[in-house]
Amino acid sequence: MTVMTERAGQMPVEEFERIARLVERESDAVRLEFTNGRIGFKGMTDGDHAEIIRWLQKRCKQARPDLWLYAGGEIGILVGEYRNGRAKPGALLAPDKAFAGAGDWADPAPVLMTVEVTSYDWDTDRRDREEKPAGYAAAGIPVFPLIDRGHGTVTAHSEPTPGGYGFRQVADFGMKLMVPGPVSVELDTEELKNYIR
């Protein structure tokens, strides 16, 4: 669920961070994000979501042992134009220990790839298919795969610009997809067919 709060057009980032600390201290069941002046609430992920992240961790570790796929909201990052947004990706790929000493919302500079797995909620279209790619591209994150359970596809976004990603490759579940550099990992998506409704 997303709640829109407007104050002179947009909620101040500092106010969001204060609210996020309070809510997340009280509940493990919700993660807060901030994009386009709106607080986004992400609920608990389901078992299939967790299995998709496990599948991707295994593929990344085999192909790129020099990197680590941080999973499910472990790291919050600054996103969007001028880093005014705050996101907790489904997973992100970065060098080992890249976030040592980082606060609640880390600089995205070491991030090579963010990953989102769509949910089955009413807000996934706007959040995962529109706002997240725009925010990650504006932050300069080189690669953004969207694992879309609703469409049965993996879309690898690359070539970030301030206006969005300039290149997209789409593969239906069951096909192979080469995630472009600097990640350079081939994904055989056959297993993903097991994790959709």
Rank of each mutant, 00 (worst) to 15 (best):
D48P: 00
D48F: 12
D48G: 00
H49Y: 03
A50M: 09
A50G: 14
A50W: 01
E51R: 14
E51F: 01
E51M: 09
I52W: 01
I52C: 01
I53P: 02
I53A: 13
I53N: 08
R54A: 10
W55A: 03
W55S: 02
W55V: 03
L56G: 02
L56E: 06
Q57P: 00
Q57M: 05
K58P: 00
K58Y: 04
R59D: 04
R59F: 03
C60I: 12
C60T: 12
C60H: 11
Q62W: 01
Q62S: 07
Q62H: 00
A63N: 01
R64A: 05
R64V: 06
R64L: 07
R64T: 08
R64P: 04
L67Y: 03
L69N: 04
L69A: 04
L69E: 05
L69R: 07
L69C: 06
Y70S: 04
Y70L: 04
Y70C: 03
A71G: 11
A71F: 01
G72A: 15
G73Q: 06
G73R: 09
E74M: 14
I75G: 05
I75N: 05
I75A: 09
I75L: 08
G76T: 05
V79D: 02
G80K: 10
G80L: 13
E81N: 06
E81S: 15
E81H: 13
E81Y: 06
E81D: 10
Y82C: 01
Y82W: 08
Y82T: 09
Y82D: 13
R83V: 06
R83N: 11
R83C: 02
N84K: 13
G85Y: 12
R86H: 08
A87D: 12
A87K: 15
K88L: 15
G90C: 02
G90V: 03
A91S: 13
L93I: 05
L93A: 03
L93V: 00
A94R: 02
P95N: 03
P95Q: 05
P95L: 03
P95C: 03
D96S: 10
A98N: 02
F99K: 04
F99H: 00
F99E: 02
A100G: 07
A100V: 14
G101S: 07
A102T: 11
G103K: 12
G103Y: 09
G103H: 11
D104N: 14
D104V: 01
W105N: 10
W105P: 12
W105Y: 15
W105H: 10
W105Q: 13
A106P: 07
D107K: 04
P108V: 06
P108G: 08
A109M: 02
V111G: 05
L112E: 10
M113S: 06
M113V: 05
M113Y: 08
T114A: 15
V115T: 05
V117A: 03
T118N: 02
Y120P: 01
W122C: 08
D123F: 15
D123W: 15
T124R: 12
T124W: 12
D125T: 10
